[in-house]
Amino acid sequence: MNPFIEIITQPDNIAIVIMILMVSFFMVWAFQQAFQNDKLKASGYAVDGENDQDVDTYKPLVRIELLISLAVMLFLTIWSIVVDAPLEEIANPTLTPNPAKAPWYFLGLQELLVYFDPWLAGVVLPSLIVVGLIAIPYIDTNPKGNGYYTFSERKYSIIIFSFGFFILWLLLIVIGVFDRGPGWLWYWPWQEWDAHRVVFEPTRDLSNLVGVESRSLAGFIIGAIVVGVYMVGGMVWPYKYWQKKNPELLQQLGMIRYVTIVFLFITMMSIPIKMILRLVFLIKYVWITPWFNV
């Protein structure tokens, strides 16, 4: 069979195909409504829902709930009739499959293991995702866009969230499911997997670029400076910038909120940065310490 058809019709991967279709559909629907509301507002009209009246729960709401429930149950029933849940061989601790993949919704995190050590990819970054998500309402002080779709009134928050959700979370999941084969090597979905393929890809550490051994004291210091400049500079530079351009914004945020936002943001951006360093410049570690590597 064509490898592409084979990989997208594996029973568990059908869920991923359904996810891609559903997420794309709702992404388009959300942004379409957002732009529509922006247009309405720009020409002085009320946004969708602004002039809504009360309606009875029984039956308008109950009816639509019943219909959706029936549709969902019908959909799941058909899915369950057509596709059987896979059951592989009995668990065998002595036989490691290659690749050994985590459940699909954690494959974005497993994908990060290419770029970060496990303590970052598997523990620190996921914890920060949860903390960051919970923090959103407390750090987003923009009162606009509450209760309706809009883009123009919340540009930055929507762009940042969409980048995290669609690229860093969902796209990495899709890559992990469809583009990772034996040895966690990259395979296009239409390529045949080859368990004997070896890729020789010499990597280096950042300080090697200036000819310094990364495991030496000098390499340690260079790494510390680079990471320090990124973190501290990332904190200070936007502050200076906003002080000039938009001091009211800083006033409105306050110190604690500002530090939280910028810390979460530069941590998030360290993921694509590290990816580029690894993929384009073949850099494995930026900073090597006796305790951990970054």
Binding site: M22, V23, F26, M27, A30, A34, L133, I136, P137, D140, P143, K144, G145, N146, G147, Y148, Y149, T150, R154, I158, F161, F165, L170
Partner: peptide, 14 residues
């Protein structure tokens, strides 16, 4: 996940 996306897009966490 889509529910979370919708709640974010309508600013309903505010």
């Amino acid at each position: 996940m889509i529910h979370m996306f919708r709640v974010f897009m309508t600013g309903s966490y505010k």
